[in-house]
Amino acid sequence: MSPVEMNLEARFEAYVAEDKKIEPKDWMPDAYRKTLIRQISQHAHSEIVGMLPEGNWITRAPSLKRKAILLAKVQDEAGHGLYLYSAAETLGVTRDQMLDDLHTGKAKYSSIFNYPTISWADIGAVGWLVDGAAIMNQVPLCKCSYGPYARAMVRVCKEESFHQRQGFQIMLTMAQGTPEQKALAQDAFNRWWWPSLMMFGPSDADSPHSGQSMKWNIKRFSNDELRQRFVDMTVPQAELLGLTVPDPDLKWNEDRGHYDFGAIDWDEFFNVIKGNGPCNKERLAARVSAHERGAWVREAAKAHAAKQAERRAKSSTHAA
């Protein structure tokens, strides 16, 4: 390592240690850049693929009001994806490259979106639990060391709380409805509870990148810590709804001041990540198809822009 590089590395380390932000043109270690590109683009992909399970219910929402709300929520998720893609691009990766990686299956997205939304109650459960878990994960990222990522997350977090509240309100309405509606709410809760706990990632012991990310101030709390917080926050909400948490081992632990909960089926988690979840193929196919069917629009807009630019150039030479 040259003296100049040592100097730069020392400055980087000092910035991170002092909780200062790293900005796009600042020197940064290659591994830091790579880690961020991977994490931010995966995060962006998750927002975009996450539109699919909810988009599934836009045309079938039970009222015009619910439909408008769901549309706004799904549109927000598109926005989140766009904030994050542009944050990743400040690190030198192109949008084309990221989309390519998603469409070829090289890049991952949150495995939660590989589960189906089979009833309207699922839309409630997704907002309440999936957005709830996402908020838990995302709030600490507002303070992460990379400026553009942190700023994108501030915007995202501001918008997320409406997502969780509208989901909870759907659950509340159904839980207080007819016995059939309450049964649908319980069924959705049963199916989304465990995958939501898996959203925090593998247990700390099996999370290889966590240590380095903590040192770089990209990650601030461990997976298990955030998962515990989510359980502690959500169980009383389930009680308020009058729904049963689908975990026979769930119990308040007076000594720890936390809920104890049952073992997570990590085989299921890794199996879904590998591509064998109920909807992996459907989700990816929907993304690829949307991208391909939109190709002519992108081309046409480019051709139109080129033509307009040419016209402007001509008329300005005439004027001169």
């Binding site: 542009s86 700023r151 139109h304 822009a305």
Partner: peptide, 8 residues
């Protein structure tokens, strides 16, 4: 506030 892609 950020960036985005557009044809024009």
């Amino acid at each position: 506030v950020g960036s985005l892609h557009a044809a024009d």
